[in-house]
Amino acid sequence: MVGRNLQAHPGLQGIAVLAPGRNELDLLDFGSVERYLRANSPDLIIHCAGTVGGIQANMREPVRFLLENLDMGRNLVWAAKNAEVKRLINLGSSCMYPRDAQNPLKEEMILRGELEPTNEGYALAKVTIARFCEYIGREDPGYQYKTLIPCNLYGPWDKFDPGHSHLIPAVIHKIYQAKIAGDEEVVIWGDGTARREFMYAPDLADCLVRAMQHFDSLPGVMNVGLGRDYTINEYYRTVAQVIGFEGEFVHDLDKPVGMKQKLVDVERQMGWGWQAKTSLLDGVAQTFEFYRRQMAPNG
């Protein structure tokens, strides 16, 4: 999702972009990654690949989420160092923050407490790679490997399959299917009061383009977010408004909900001079149009 939205950003016009798919480059194969980087000698790498999914997928497959994200990050970062690529932007995740940390989540809180158990494997991998980038620059300041920590994301090219998706695409799929089936109720996990911060993925792409253009001023570790969050219930209501679903919502209080709040602090980001522009309503509407055109199994 992030890579496709980044490639679509007009700020990349005139820049030679290498964006190998899995069939061309397997990031789980260190030798292949190192040979690829030595052969192509990129000026800068943006690491936005990953094995990702929502709460169901993370709870079901913690081994895969830990190992694949750890291996991809380790292989790419170490191969970049061996190939003498001096600049790299690594994408972390707000899952890196402790489960009981005070919101908003400041960058210095990483590794200051226990991680959220429902996505611990993924978070451990992300924390490790962020520290790996920091260590490389600490040993040799000629290598500037920086980490951006986005809040939760949604948008075009997201995963809409409920078994693998995050909140907003899963809700879009669920409510759209309920509407076309004529269902009168949609189930929400938990009481819906947990708060989440979701940013439209093209906005992150805009931040990444600015990071490329102003790499030297980019902090070594920086959150990227909205600076505000919404309840799960508000996300459901916004999606229902966009789709035109007029049924009721029912809460399943026996289901896990994860952290009660996860809002990143954007003081460092604002000081650097960037902020997201897309409203929740506009972002959901554009994401739904993408889903309806390309992904909806009955649309």
Rank of each mutant, 00 (worst) to 15 (best):
M1S: 15
V2M: 00
G3H: 06
L6D: 09
G11V: 07
G14V: 08
L18K: 08
G21D: 14
R22D: 03
D26H: 05
R38I: 05
L44R: 09
H47D: 12
C48Q: 04
G54Y: 11
Q56K: 15
R60L: 09
E61F: 10
V63C: 06
R64D: 04
N69W: 09
D71W: 06
N75T: 12
W78N: 11
A79M: 03
A79W: 02
V85D: 05
R87K: 08
R87D: 04
L88P: 06
I89F: 06
I89R: 10
N90F: 10
N90A: 02
N90E: 07
L91I: 06
C95Y: 14
Y97K: 11
Y97S: 02
R99Q: 12
Q102T: 15
N103A: 15
E107R: 06
E108S: 11
M109I: 01
I110L: 12
L111H: 09
G113Q: 13
G113M: 10
L115Y: 05
L115K: 03
L115H: 07
K126G: 08
A130T: 11
A130D: 13
A130P: 09
R131Y: 06
C133S: 13
I136N: 07
R138F: 13
E139S: 07
Y145A: 08
K146A: 07
T147M: 13
T147I: 11
T147Q: 12
P150S: 14
P150M: 09
N152P: 05
P156L: 12
K159C: 13
F160M: 01
F160D: 01
G163C: 09
S165F: 02
L167G: 01
L167A: 10
P169C: 02
A170E: 14
A170I: 00
K174G: 11
K174M: 14
K174Q: 15
D183N: 08
I188P: 10
W189M: 04
T193H: 10
A194H: 10
E197C: 11
Y200R: 04
P202G: 00
D203P: 01
C207Q: 08
Q213S: 13
H214G: 00
S217V: 04
G220W: 14
M222D: 01
V224D: 03
G227D: 00
N233Q: 09
E234K: 07
E234D: 15
T238C: 10
G244V: 00
E246I: 07
E246N: 15
E248P: 01
V257Q: 14
V257T: 15
M259F: 01
K260N: 08
K260T: 13
D265I: 02
R268E: 15
M270N: 14
M270E: 15
G271Y: 01
W272V: 00
A276D: 02
G283C: 15
A285P: 08
Q286C: 09
E289W: 00
R292A: 14
R292Q: 14
R293T: 11
M295Y: 04
A296K: 05
